[in-house]
Simulated scan of single mutants.
Amino acid sequence: MENLPETLYVDPISVSYCTTPTDSTAADHAKIEQCIQLLHEPLHREEALAILNKVHERRIKDMPVLLWNANNVSYILLQEILSAYKLLSPPTLTRKEATRVCNALALIQAMATHPETRMKIVKAKLPVYIYPFMNTTESHVKHFDYLRLTSLGIIGALVKSEDTNSPDIIHFLLETELFPLCLRCMEVGGELAKTVAAFIISKILMYEEGQRYCGTFPERFYAVSNVLANTIDQFPGKPPSQLLKHILTCFMRLTDVSRARDALSKCYPAKLRDPAYINFACEDMAVRRLADQVLHNVTVHRTFG
Protein backbone atom coordinates (compact mmCIF):
# COMPACT_ATOMS: atom_id res chain seq x y z
CA MET A 1 0.00 0.00 0.00
CA GLU A 2 2.97 2.36 -0.42
CA ASN A 3 1.86 3.63 -3.81
CA LEU A 4 -1.28 5.58 -4.57
CA PRO A 5 -3.74 3.67 -6.74
CA GLU A 6 -3.22 3.90 -10.48
CA THR A 7 -6.75 5.24 -10.94
CA LEU A 8 -5.53 8.55 -9.58
CA TYR A 9 -3.16 8.94 -12.51
CA VAL A 10 -5.89 8.39 -15.10
CA ASP A 11 -7.66 11.39 -16.59
CA PRO A 12 -11.27 10.66 -15.59
CA ILE A 13 -12.70 12.76 -18.42
CA SER A 14 -10.65 11.51 -21.34
CA VAL A 15 -9.95 7.89 -20.44
CA SER A 16 -11.94 6.04 -17.82
CA TYR A 17 -15.39 7.30 -18.89
CA CYS A 18 -14.67 6.42 -22.51
CA THR A 19 -13.57 2.85 -21.83
CA THR A 20 -16.17 0.28 -22.82
CA PRO A 21 -17.32 -1.66 -19.74
CA THR A 22 -16.48 -5.35 -19.80
CA ASP A 23 -18.86 -8.17 -18.92
CA SER A 24 -18.14 -9.84 -15.61
CA THR A 25 -17.18 -13.49 -15.32
CA ALA A 26 -18.07 -15.91 -12.56
CA ALA A 27 -14.57 -15.37 -11.16
CA ASP A 28 -15.13 -11.59 -11.14
CA HIS A 29 -18.39 -12.01 -9.27
CA ALA A 30 -16.75 -14.30 -6.74
CA LYS A 31 -13.90 -11.86 -6.13
CA ILE A 32 -16.28 -8.92 -5.74
CA GLU A 33 -18.52 -10.84 -3.35
CA GLN A 34 -15.51 -11.96 -1.32
CA CYS A 35 -14.22 -8.38 -1.05
CA ILE A 36 -17.65 -7.11 -0.08
CA GLN A 37 -17.63 -9.57 2.80
CA LEU A 38 -14.15 -8.38 3.81
CA LEU A 39 -15.37 -4.78 3.85
CA HIS A 40 -17.46 -5.68 6.87
CA GLU A 41 -14.33 -6.75 8.77
CA PRO A 42 -12.39 -3.64 9.94
CA LEU A 43 -9.06 -5.48 9.99
CA HIS A 44 -9.40 -6.46 6.32
CA ARG A 45 -11.22 -3.38 5.02
CA GLU A 46 -8.15 -1.58 3.69
CA GLU A 47 -7.10 -4.62 1.68
CA ALA A 48 -10.64 -5.13 0.35
CA LEU A 49 -10.86 -1.50 -0.79
CA ALA A 50 -7.57 -1.82 -2.67
CA ILE A 51 -8.63 -5.04 -4.42
CA LEU A 52 -12.05 -3.66 -5.36
CA ASN A 53 -10.37 -0.57 -6.78
CA LYS A 54 -8.20 -2.80 -8.99
CA VAL A 55 -11.35 -4.57 -10.19
CA HIS A 56 -12.93 -1.16 -10.85
CA GLU A 57 -9.99 -0.24 -13.11
CA ARG A 58 -11.03 -3.11 -15.39
CA ARG A 59 -14.46 -1.47 -15.81
CA ILE A 60 -16.54 -4.52 -14.86
CA LYS A 61 -20.01 -3.67 -16.15
CA ASP A 62 -22.24 -4.65 -13.22
CA MET A 63 -19.80 -4.00 -10.38
CA PRO A 64 -21.44 -0.64 -9.39
CA VAL A 65 -24.83 -2.34 -9.07
CA LEU A 66 -23.36 -5.14 -6.96
CA LEU A 67 -21.75 -2.58 -4.65
CA TRP A 68 -24.89 -0.48 -4.30
CA ASN A 69 -27.16 -3.45 -3.60
CA ALA A 70 -24.79 -5.09 -1.13
CA ASN A 71 -25.80 -4.71 2.49
CA ASN A 72 -24.16 -1.71 4.23
CA VAL A 73 -21.47 -1.13 1.56
CA SER A 74 -22.52 2.49 0.93
CA TYR A 75 -22.49 3.10 4.68
CA ILE A 76 -19.01 1.57 4.98
CA LEU A 77 -17.69 3.79 2.19
CA LEU A 78 -19.24 6.78 3.92
CA GLN A 79 -17.50 5.78 7.17
CA GLU A 80 -14.17 5.75 5.32
CA ILE A 81 -14.84 9.25 4.02
CA LEU A 82 -15.95 10.64 7.38
CA SER A 83 -12.93 9.16 9.16
CA ALA A 84 -10.63 11.33 7.02
CA TYR A 85 -12.30 14.64 7.95
CA LYS A 86 -10.37 15.02 11.18
CA LEU A 87 -7.11 14.77 9.20
CA LEU A 88 -7.91 17.72 6.94
CA SER A 89 -7.63 20.58 9.44
CA PRO A 90 -4.94 20.83 10.52
CA PRO A 91 -3.71 18.92 7.45
CA THR A 92 -2.22 15.74 8.90
CA LEU A 93 -3.47 13.26 6.28
CA THR A 94 -0.64 10.91 5.32
CA ARG A 95 -0.02 9.34 1.93
CA LYS A 96 -1.16 5.94 3.20
CA GLU A 97 -4.37 7.38 4.66
CA ALA A 98 -5.01 9.28 1.41
CA THR A 99 -4.64 6.04 -0.55
CA ARG A 100 -7.25 4.33 1.60
CA VAL A 101 -9.86 7.09 1.32
CA CYS A 102 -9.16 7.48 -2.41
CA ASN A 103 -9.88 3.77 -2.87
CA ALA A 104 -13.25 4.31 -1.17
CA LEU A 105 -13.95 7.38 -3.32
CA ALA A 106 -13.07 5.45 -6.48
CA LEU A 107 -15.83 2.94 -5.70
CA ILE A 108 -18.34 5.78 -5.36
CA GLN A 109 -17.05 7.06 -8.70
CA ALA A 110 -17.83 3.64 -10.18
CA MET A 111 -21.41 3.98 -8.99
CA ALA A 112 -21.56 7.52 -10.37
CA THR A 113 -20.73 6.23 -13.86
CA HIS A 114 -23.45 3.57 -14.00
CA PRO A 115 -26.94 4.51 -15.27
CA GLU A 116 -28.65 2.31 -12.66
CA THR A 117 -26.82 3.79 -9.67
CA ARG A 118 -26.01 7.38 -10.72
CA MET A 119 -29.25 8.93 -9.50
CA LYS A 120 -29.35 6.70 -6.44
CA ILE A 121 -26.13 8.16 -5.06
CA VAL A 122 -27.43 11.66 -5.83
CA LYS A 123 -30.72 11.01 -4.02
CA ALA A 124 -28.72 9.64 -1.09
CA LYS A 125 -26.68 12.91 -1.21
CA LEU A 126 -23.41 10.95 -1.16
CA PRO A 127 -21.56 13.55 -3.29
CA VAL A 128 -22.00 16.17 -0.55
CA TYR A 129 -19.70 14.16 1.71
CA ILE A 130 -16.78 14.55 -0.70
CA TYR A 131 -17.01 18.35 -0.77
CA PRO A 132 -14.60 18.86 2.17
CA PHE A 133 -11.86 17.14 0.15
CA MET A 134 -12.42 19.60 -2.71
CA ASN A 135 -12.20 22.50 -0.26
CA THR A 136 -8.64 21.76 0.88
CA THR A 137 -5.99 24.40 0.17
CA GLU A 138 -2.75 22.40 0.32
CA SER A 139 -1.42 23.06 -3.17
CA HIS A 140 2.03 21.49 -2.93
CA VAL A 141 1.20 18.18 -1.26
CA LYS A 142 0.66 15.48 -3.88
CA HIS A 143 -1.61 13.20 -1.93
CA PHE A 144 -3.95 16.09 -1.13
CA ASP A 145 -4.16 16.83 -4.83
CA TYR A 146 -4.88 13.14 -5.56
CA LEU A 147 -7.68 13.37 -3.01
CA ARG A 148 -9.07 16.44 -4.80
CA LEU A 149 -8.73 14.71 -8.17
CA THR A 150 -10.51 11.54 -7.07
CA SER A 151 -13.32 13.63 -5.59
CA LEU A 152 -13.60 15.62 -8.81
CA GLY A 153 -13.75 12.30 -10.66
CA ILE A 154 -17.04 11.50 -8.91
CA ILE A 155 -18.57 14.82 -9.98
CA GLY A 156 -17.12 14.40 -13.47
CA ALA A 157 -18.82 11.02 -13.74
CA LEU A 158 -22.16 12.52 -12.70
CA VAL A 159 -22.06 15.30 -15.31
CA LYS A 160 -20.38 13.33 -18.11
CA SER A 161 -23.41 11.37 -19.22
CA GLU A 162 -26.21 13.46 -20.69
CA ASP A 163 -29.55 11.77 -20.13
CA THR A 164 -33.01 12.55 -18.76
CA ASN A 165 -31.60 12.75 -15.22
CA SER A 166 -28.94 15.32 -16.09
CA PRO A 167 -30.99 18.46 -15.29
CA ASP A 168 -31.81 17.02 -11.85
CA ILE A 169 -28.13 16.26 -11.25
CA ILE A 170 -27.10 19.78 -12.27
CA HIS A 171 -29.79 21.23 -9.97
CA PHE A 172 -28.51 19.11 -7.08
CA LEU A 173 -24.90 20.20 -7.64
CA LEU A 174 -25.79 23.88 -7.84
CA GLU A 175 -28.15 23.69 -4.86
CA THR A 176 -25.44 22.09 -2.73
CA GLU A 177 -22.88 24.80 -3.69
CA LEU A 178 -20.58 22.57 -5.71
CA PHE A 179 -19.65 25.39 -8.08
CA PRO A 180 -17.38 27.41 -5.72
CA LEU A 181 -15.55 24.19 -4.84
CA CYS A 182 -14.73 23.59 -8.50
CA LEU A 183 -13.31 27.12 -8.65
CA ARG A 184 -11.24 26.37 -5.54
CA CYS A 185 -9.85 23.24 -7.22
CA MET A 186 -8.90 25.29 -10.27
CA GLU A 187 -7.08 27.74 -8.04
CA VAL A 188 -5.07 25.31 -5.91
CA GLY A 189 -5.16 22.00 -7.76
CA GLY A 190 -2.55 20.45 -10.02
CA GLU A 191 -2.84 20.42 -13.79
CA LEU A 192 -5.15 17.42 -13.96
CA ALA A 193 -7.38 18.64 -11.12
CA LYS A 194 -7.68 22.01 -12.87
CA THR A 195 -8.62 20.26 -16.10
CA VAL A 196 -11.34 18.10 -14.53
CA ALA A 197 -12.73 21.08 -12.58
CA ALA A 198 -12.88 23.17 -15.77
CA PHE A 199 -14.60 20.25 -17.53
CA ILE A 200 -17.25 20.08 -14.78
CA ILE A 201 -17.88 23.82 -14.98
CA SER A 202 -18.22 23.63 -18.77
CA LYS A 203 -20.78 20.83 -18.43
CA ILE A 204 -22.79 22.77 -15.82
CA LEU A 205 -22.83 25.78 -18.16
CA MET A 206 -24.48 23.66 -20.84
CA TYR A 207 -27.72 23.92 -18.90
CA GLU A 208 -29.92 26.97 -18.51
CA GLU A 209 -29.86 26.68 -14.73
CA GLY A 210 -26.06 26.72 -14.77
CA GLN A 211 -26.00 29.75 -17.04
CA ARG A 212 -28.45 31.55 -14.78
CA TYR A 213 -26.36 30.67 -11.73
CA CYS A 214 -23.20 32.18 -13.22
CA GLY A 215 -24.60 34.94 -15.40
CA THR A 216 -27.32 36.55 -13.29
CA PHE A 217 -25.26 37.88 -10.37
CA PRO A 218 -22.13 39.98 -11.11
CA GLU A 219 -20.14 38.56 -8.18
CA ARG A 220 -20.62 35.01 -9.46
CA PHE A 221 -19.74 35.92 -13.03
CA TYR A 222 -16.55 37.74 -12.02
CA ALA A 223 -15.56 34.90 -9.67
CA VAL A 224 -15.80 32.46 -12.60
CA SER A 225 -14.18 34.68 -15.23
CA ASN A 226 -11.32 35.69 -12.92
CA VAL A 227 -10.48 32.07 -12.05
CA LEU A 228 -10.58 31.05 -15.71
CA ALA A 229 -8.34 33.97 -16.70
CA ASN A 230 -5.93 33.43 -13.81
CA THR A 231 -5.62 29.74 -14.71
CA ILE A 232 -4.49 30.69 -18.21
CA ASP A 233 -1.97 33.15 -16.74
CA GLN A 234 -0.50 30.49 -14.44
CA PHE A 235 1.18 28.84 -17.44
CA PRO A 236 4.14 30.90 -18.70
CA GLY A 237 4.30 28.71 -21.79
CA LYS A 238 1.52 26.81 -23.50
CA PRO A 239 -1.35 25.76 -21.26
CA PRO A 240 -2.30 22.07 -21.54
CA SER A 241 -4.51 21.60 -24.59
CA GLN A 242 -7.37 19.88 -22.73
CA LEU A 243 -7.40 22.52 -20.01
CA LEU A 244 -7.41 25.34 -22.57
CA LYS A 245 -10.24 23.64 -24.45
CA HIS A 246 -12.43 23.40 -21.34
CA ILE A 247 -11.69 27.00 -20.32
CA LEU A 248 -12.60 28.24 -23.78
CA THR A 249 -15.77 26.14 -23.66
CA CYS A 250 -16.70 27.82 -20.37
CA PHE A 251 -16.22 31.25 -21.93
CA MET A 252 -18.18 30.19 -25.01
CA ARG A 253 -21.16 29.16 -22.89
CA LEU A 254 -20.98 32.37 -20.89
CA THR A 255 -21.35 34.32 -24.14
CA ASP A 256 -24.80 32.74 -24.46
CA VAL A 257 -25.88 34.86 -21.47
CA SER A 258 -26.45 38.47 -22.52
CA ARG A 259 -25.24 40.09 -19.28
CA ALA A 260 -22.20 37.84 -19.11
CA ARG A 261 -21.38 38.48 -22.77
CA ASP A 262 -21.60 42.21 -22.16
CA ALA A 263 -19.17 41.93 -19.24
CA LEU A 264 -16.82 39.67 -21.23
CA SER A 265 -16.55 42.34 -23.92
CA LYS A 266 -14.64 44.34 -21.31
CA CYS A 267 -12.88 41.69 -19.20
CA TYR A 268 -12.09 38.83 -21.60
CA PRO A 269 -8.45 37.86 -20.93
CA ALA A 270 -5.89 39.88 -22.91
CA LYS A 271 -3.95 36.72 -23.77
CA LEU A 272 -6.98 35.20 -25.47
CA ARG A 273 -7.44 38.38 -27.51
CA ASP A 274 -3.84 38.27 -28.76
CA PRO A 275 -3.55 36.54 -32.19
CA ALA A 276 0.11 35.72 -31.51
CA TYR A 277 -0.77 33.95 -28.26
CA ILE A 278 -3.65 32.10 -29.90
CA ASN A 279 -1.32 30.90 -32.67
CA PHE A 280 1.21 29.83 -30.04
CA ALA A 281 -1.18 28.15 -27.60
CA CYS A 282 -3.69 26.43 -29.90
CA GLU A 283 -1.90 23.56 -31.62
CA ASP A 284 -5.15 21.63 -32.06
CA MET A 285 -7.26 23.12 -34.86
CA ALA A 286 -10.52 22.39 -33.02
CA VAL A 287 -9.26 24.38 -30.02
CA ARG A 288 -8.11 27.17 -32.36
CA ARG A 289 -11.54 27.39 -33.95
CA LEU A 290 -13.12 27.49 -30.50
CA ALA A 291 -10.80 30.34 -29.45
CA ASP A 292 -11.65 32.27 -32.63
CA GLN A 293 -15.39 31.76 -32.10
CA VAL A 294 -15.32 32.96 -28.49
CA LEU A 295 -13.31 36.04 -29.48
CA HIS A 296 -15.76 36.71 -32.32
CA ASN A 297 -18.71 36.48 -29.92
CA VAL A 298 -17.05 38.87 -27.50
CA THR A 299 -15.81 41.45 -30.00
CA VAL A 300 -18.94 41.47 -32.20
CA HIS A 301 -21.03 42.21 -29.11
CA ARG A 302 -18.59 44.95 -28.10
CA THR A 303 -18.78 46.55 -31.53
CA PHE A 304 -22.45 46.11 -32.40
CA GLY A 305 -24.18 45.15 -29.14
Rank of each mutant, 00 (worst) to 15 (best):
P167Y: 01
K160C: 14
C214S: 14
I204L: 10
S166F: 01
F217I: 15
A223Q: 15
P127D: 05
K123M: 13
A157Q: 01
L149I: 04
P127T: 00
E208M: 13
E162R: 12
V196E: 04
D168V: 12
T164H: 15
K123F: 08
M186A: 00
C185L: 03
D145Y: 05
S202T: 05
R148H: 00
R220I: 14
T195P: 03
A223C: 13
H143W: 03
M206S: 13
C182H: 07
M134A: 04
T136A: 02
L152H: 03
L205E: 03
G156R: 06
G215Q: 02
M206D: 15
T176K: 15
F217T: 14
I170A: 12
L178F: 12
R118I: 01
G156H: 04
P132V: 03
K123V: 13
V128P: 07
R212Q: 15
E208F: 11
H143D: 00
V196F: 06
E209Y: 12
T150A: 15
G153K: 00
E162P: 07
I204E: 11
L149M: 08
I154D: 04
M119C: 08
V128K: 13
K194A: 10
H140T: 14
N135E: 03
I200C: 07
E191Q: 15
M206P: 12
I121D: 09
G156K: 00
M186V: 04
K120I: 08
S166W: 05
D163C: 03
Y213T: 10
P218D: 12
L147F: 01
A197R: 06
A193V: 00
T176C: 10
F133C: 06
F217C: 12
M134C: 05
R220W: 10
A193F: 00
I121V: 00
R184C: 07
